[in-house]
Every structure is written in structure tokens, then in C-alpha cells.
Simulated scan of single mutants.
Amino acid sequence: MPPGRRGRRLMGEINVVPYIDVMLVLLIIFMVTAPLLTQGIEVELPKVGAQPLDPADYLDEEALVLSVDAAGNLYLNFGERTAPVSVEDATEQARALLSRGPDRPVLVRADARASYGDVALAMRVLQDAGAGQIGMVTDPEELNIPGGR
């Protein structure tokens, strides 16, 4: 035996306890912050049996979403605002966001109780800002098939 190594064996195992501790701390951080990251206002989306969009189109960039509540107020997912914006402000902010990312997906998220005119106004705001294609956010339709099938 070499001198200074009497009675000691080399340990051939990795101590994974510190890694598990770090993983659990990160898990707790993500569990606490994930609900805080959802932004926007509470709207009751219309239930429509439309073809869903491909989620791969939205993975690269965050979508630009203009929300319309039941009272016709406009909300843009820009920053952490929860206050309604005017038509002029929404147009300017959407134009600025689209100039930085022209391929950014553009969506309208309107409450089912919002008037047709308010939703059309939201779409016009996005078109004035330079959006080429505008998608509508809806909930999937619940099918009530007689006979329980």
C-alpha cells in the first residue's frame, strides 16, 4: 500500500443527494412561479368546433394576443398590464411588437358575450398594426350526442 493511504478505500459511487436537493428546490420554484406567468384577463371563450392550430407554430415565438372582455375593453399581452388599453395605444403597441417579430402569431381572444362590433374592432386594430393573418382563440365544443356515444 502506498504511504498515507492506509485503511482508506476509493469510493466508486457518486453522491446524488445534493443533486436531488437542487432538483427539488427547482421544482418548488417552478411550481410557485408557473401560475404567476399566466397573464391576461378572465374571458369566457365561445365554444366552437373549429380545427385546432398546430402548436409547433407557436413554440418559437410568443403569440401577440389581443383580448376583448364582455364590456368591449381591449387588453394586449404586452408587459404585465391588467388595465384596458385604448384603440390607439393597442394599435401602436401591436405595431411595435410586430415590427420586432413580423412572423409572430397574432390571435384575438374574445369573450363569448362580447359584441360582434367589439371583436371586429379588435381585428381592425391588429390589421392596422400590420398583422397579416389573425387567429381566433376558442374553447373546444362539447358534443352532446343522443344515445351516449
Rank of each mutant, 00 (worst) to 15 (best):
A129I: 03
A114Y: 01
A110T: 08
I145E: 09
E88P: 00
P55N: 06
R8P: 02
A83K: 13
A114V: 10
Q39N: 13
P105F: 08
A34E: 12
L143P: 01
G7W: 06
A90F: 01
V25E: 15
Y58D: 04
V22M: 07
S115E: 14
L107Y: 00
P140Y: 07
I20E: 02
G49C: 02
F78T: 06
V125E: 05
L121K: 09
V125Q: 08
N77F: 04
I28R: 15
R8V: 15
M31C: 14
G117L: 14
E62R: 14
T38Y: 14
F30I: 05
D128K: 07
Q133H: 11
L126W: 09
V32T: 15
P52M: 05
P35H: 11
E92R: 07
Y58W: 06
K47D: 07
D118M: 08
G79V: 07
D128R: 12
P102N: 05
V125Y: 10
E92M: 11
N144C: 06
R95I: 05
A83F: 11
M123T: 07
V119C: 06
V17S: 12
G101E: 09
A70G: 04
I14R: 14
G135D: 00
D57K: 12
T33Y: 15
I145C: 05
R100I: 03
P52G: 07
L45D: 02
P146K: 14
A71P: 02
L98H: 07
N15Q: 14
L27K: 03
V87H: 05
E62M: 13
P18H: 11
S115I: 02
V87T: 08
R109T: 01
D60H: 06
L64E: 03
G148Q: 09
E92A: 15
P35D: 05
L76G: 10
G135L: 05
D21V: 09
L59R: 10
S99T: 09
P46D: 00
S99A: 15
R81L: 04
T82M: 13
G79N: 14
V87N: 09
